[in-house]
């Protein structure tokens, strides 16, 4: 009776281990984050944005669903839309990262918006960011604060040639 109970407990334990998200490849362990940075702000500018590259090394689609940082009161995922000549910035529920592909968070496109900065961001500082994925797994990274002019030299922004 006891052994039966023990084996049942064992089976339960095995079962739960096998199906716990930690035992499967979590989204966080499948996503490689590179080139993170946050733009330094001009005097009086209380918002900034974080940019980075998300690479999905797995065969499953994943998504970034939220981000947090002690540097700002509110952190949201945003995108830019170019609608009838108007630049619109909109919050998005998630940023998809397709299987075996890269999603770039860049100027004029997807970005992590830092709203109401707790203090002005100066070049050389580091901003801690926690990125949470669709399965609840997360990655903590540190993004350097860089001058916008330095980032624009190396990374051309999205061009819109409507006119």
């Amino acid at each position: 009776m006891l052994s039966k109970f023990a084996s049942l407990a064992c089976a339960c334990a095995l079962f739960s281990t096998a199906y716990a998200p930690a035992a499967l490849a979590s989204a966080a362990s499948s996503i490689r984050i590179s080139h993170p940075y946050v733009t330094a702000v001009a005097p009086g500018q209380t918002n900034s944005a974080a940019f980075l590259v998300l690479k999905n090394t797995s065969a499953h689609d994943h998504a970034l669903v939220s981000a947090s940082s002690p540097a700002a009161e509110i952190v949201q995922l945003h995108t830019h839309l170019h609608v009838n000549g108007m630049m619109e910035m909109r919050q998005v529920k998630q940023i998809p990262i397709k299987a075996h592909s890269k999603t770039m968070l860049k100027h004029g496109g997807f970005h992590i918006m830092l709203i109401h900065l707790r203090k002005p961001l100066k070049p050389g500082e580091q901003v801690p960011l926690t990125l949470t994925f669709e399965d609840g797994s997360h990655q903590k990274i540190s993004a350097p604060v860089v001058k916008l002019s330095d980032t624009l030299k190396s990374m051309p922004m999205k061009m819109d040639r409507h006119h």
């Binding site: 500018q45 918002n47 900034s48 002019s149 624009l152």
Partner: peptide, 17 residues
């Protein structure tokens, strides 16, 4: 506008450059 987090600072940086 100065609350603009990306578009305006980017364009003003390009103008400055």
């Amino acid at each position: 506008y100065t609350f603009c987090p990306d578009i305006c600072p980017t364009t003003l940086t390009l103008i400055g450059q």
